[in-house]
Structures are given as C-alpha cells and as structure tokens.
C-alpha cells in the first residue's frame, strides 16, 4: 500500500538551535500518528514543517495526491500547496482563535472552506454548516453567533467542524485539547475519537498529554531535543517503553 504521507529526514534549525532533526516516518491511510514529548522537544516545529507552515532546512514530505499520486509538498508550487491546505489537508490549532475567524459567524467559519473550493449556493452552504455544528455537538441555533460568544470547548469543536467540512484526507492537530478544563477535554476527545472512526480519518496529533494519544493514536513517536527517540504502536510504547526518556515520560515524572 502507498503511504498517504511519507516523511523523510525533516530537519529544521532556528539559527544554531535545533527545532527538529532528521525525522522520518510513513503514515498509512486511516492511521492516527501521535507525537509526544515534553515542551520544547520539537513537536510543533515538526508538525508545522509537515503541514507547509514552516519551510524545513532538509527533508521531504511526500503526500499521495488525488490526481498525481505521491508528490513532495515541500518542493511543489505554493499555489498547489495552499490548495492542499484547504482541500485534502486540515490543521487544528491549539488556540481556537488561531484557527477561527473570530469576527465571522459560526456558519461563516464552517462555510469558508466550502466557498474557498467554489460552492456558491447559500442555502447549501448553510445547510452543510448546520449539519457540521450538530456533528460537533453545537446547537444549530448558534449558527449565526460569533465564536467570541462560545466557551473554549465550543470554539475548539467549531474549529474542528470548520476543518472537517470539506472531507480532508489528512488532519494535523497541535495540542487540540490543550488549555481546556479536564472535563471539557474528555468530551472533546470522545468527539474526536468518534469522528476519526466514522470518517476513517488519517491524522497526526501532537500532544504532551499521554491520555490523548492513548485514546486516539494507533502509533506513537516520542521526541526529545528535536529527535525521535522511540516509535511504535501506541500500547507497546506506553506499556513497555524501551528508551530511558520514554520510560521517564510514561512514569509521568516529566508530565505537565
């Protein structure tokens, strides 16, 4: 089977400082990859390099495109990469305000990607937006309200709806439950798990919270100082970590 995403030797430096170094892995369709590690270990840097938000200093990010098959997204033209970014790819930011338009209604936020790919029927766009609000457990009556009137958990669910409405094939998530209350986190995780299952989503989830990957990820990479120190099936890594750093992480010495 062709990997959906094949990451080869991704390296990003900030001056002399290493953001992430020589990261490689394959992601197959329908798989969820978790990336864990303490704060500053390079998770976001890696994710942003993969998603086309940061140019890496070295490496390839080969995506299995619909029309042309596997293609390196680092070297493809910017219009092509941005087109991927609003069709087959989605990106869920840790802070909903980075991923939402706060001055635009919930319906407009969800509808934006539809309009970006050329939908021009108001009734249809609104209908799909309302459906998606319900799928992420937001009352459809809130469709015309701005996200500024939503709770943190609702904003994050709205951001997820906005990203999934065009049926992306790959979702990047950076600490999607970070900054939320514990009970709100649990509900969001349940919702994400349901969506990943129902839609057969492929996803890469960055988190420092092992509970998140335990619930969502099929496979896991553990990062330390910009490098992957251990990788494997989620249960294996969490239940029987091999690398000393993974052991520390799992024993929760490094948690928080």
């Amino acid at each position: 089977m062709t990997p959906l995403l094949s990451v080869q030797g991704i390296t990003k430096r900030y001056g002399a400082h290493i953001g992430c170094a020589d990261v490689s892995f394959d992601l197959y369709p329908g798989e969820v990859m978790g990336i864990v590690g303490e704060s500053g270990s390079g998770k976001s840097t890696l994710l942003n390099c993969m998603a086309g938000h940061l140019p890496p200093d070295a490496g390839q990010v080969v995506f299995d495109t619909r029309t042309e098959g596997p293609k390196d997204t680092i070297t493809m033209s910017e219009p092509e990469r941005r087109m991927l970014g609003r069709t087959d790819w989605a990106f869920v930011h840790q802070h909903a305000r980075d991923g939402l338009r706060m001055g635009v209604s919930a319906g407009g936020n969800v509808g934006e990607r539809l309009m970006a790919v050329g939908e021009r029927h108001y009734g249809d766009i609104r209908g799909k937006a309302t459906d998606w609000l319900e799928r992420v457990e937001i009352d459809a009556a809130r469709v015309d309200d701005r996200p500024t009137t939503f709770s943190g958990g609702m904003q994050q669910r709205l951001q997820i709806a906005r990203n999934l409405v065009t049926g992306p094939r790959l979702v990047f998530m950076d600490e999607p439950t970070g900054g939320l209350d514990v009970s709100v986190q649990a509900r969001l995780l349940d919702l994400l798990r349901g969506l990943v299952r129902d839609m057969g989503l492929s996803a890469i989830i960055v988190t420092h919270d092992l509970a998140v990957v335990r619930l969502l990820a099929d496979r896991l990479m553990v990062m330390k100082s910009g490098r992957v120190v251990e990788a494997g099936l989620t249960d294996q890594v969490l239940d029987d970590p091999q690398h000393a750093y993974s052991q520390l992480l799992v024993s929760s010495v490094l948690q928080v």
Binding site: S105, G107, G108, E112, R113, A116, V117, R126, V143
Partner: peptide, 14 residues
C-alpha cells in the same frame, strides 16, 4: 483565492 469575499456576502445574508 477569493473564497473570503463570499464569506462576507454569506455573513450579510445570515
């Protein structure tokens, strides 16, 4: 990339 222009019109109608 002009999808945003229609977001404004969408907001108007809503």
């Amino acid at each position: 990339e002009y999808g945003l222009m229609h977001v404004k019109l969408y907001e108007d109608i809503s």
